[in-house]
Amino acid sequence: MTLTVRRIREDVADVLGEDPADIPDDENLVDYGLDSVRLMSLVERWRREHGADISFVDLAERPAIEAWAPLLGVRP
C-alpha cells in the first residue's frame, strides 16, 4: 500500500480519535491534540507499513499534513 495524503490524514485521525474529514492538510496538528507520543506512533507505523525513511524530528518541525506529504514521498 502506497502512502497518499488521504492515508496520512486517516492515520492522523486514527491516533487522534477524530474523523478524517475534520483533519485539515494545512494546519498545525498540535492544535488538534497531536503530541510527541502520538507522533512517534505515526513515525513507527509509516516505517513499518510503508518503509518510510522518516524521523520524529522531520515531522515534529512542521506538524502539518501538507508538510509531511513530500517528506513521506507522496506525489501530488
Results as ranks from 00 to 15, higher is better:
M1A: 14
M1C: 13
M1V: 13
T2P: 15
L3S: 00
T4P: 04
T4W: 02
R6S: 14
R6H: 12
I8E: 00
R9G: 01
R9E: 01
E10S: 03
V12E: 00
V12D: 00
V12A: 04
A13M: 04
A13C: 05
A13R: 02
A13I: 00
V15M: 01
L16D: 02
G17D: 02
E18P: 00
E18W: 14
E18M: 15
D19V: 07
D19T: 07
P20C: 04
P20F: 07
D22M: 12
D22W: 10
P24I: 09
P24T: 08
D25C: 06
D26Q: 08
D26K: 07
E27K: 14
N28Q: 07
L29F: 00
V30P: 02
D31C: 02
L34M: 12
D35A: 03
S36C: 01
R38N: 04
L39K: 02
L39D: 03
L39S: 01
L39A: 08
M40C: 09
M40T: 10
M40I: 07
L42G: 01
L42F: 00
L42H: 00
E44S: 13
R45K: 15
R45H: 12
W46I: 03
W46H: 06
R47T: 06
R48W: 06
E49K: 12
E49P: 04
H50N: 11
H50Y: 13
G51E: 05
A52R: 01
A52V: 08
D53F: 03
I54A: 03
S55H: 05
S55A: 10
S55E: 13
F56G: 09
F56P: 10
V57D: 11
L59Q: 05
E61V: 13
E61S: 14
R62D: 15
R62T: 15
R62A: 15
R62V: 10
P63A: 11
P63H: 10
P63Y: 11
P63C: 10
A64T: 15
A64K: 13
I65K: 01
I65T: 08
I65Y: 08
E66A: 14
E66S: 15
E66N: 14
E66D: 15
A67P: 08
A67L: 05
W68S: 11
W68F: 12
A69L: 05
A69V: 02
L72P: 03
G73W: 08
V74R: 06
V74A: 04
P76M: 09
P76Y: 02
P76K: 09
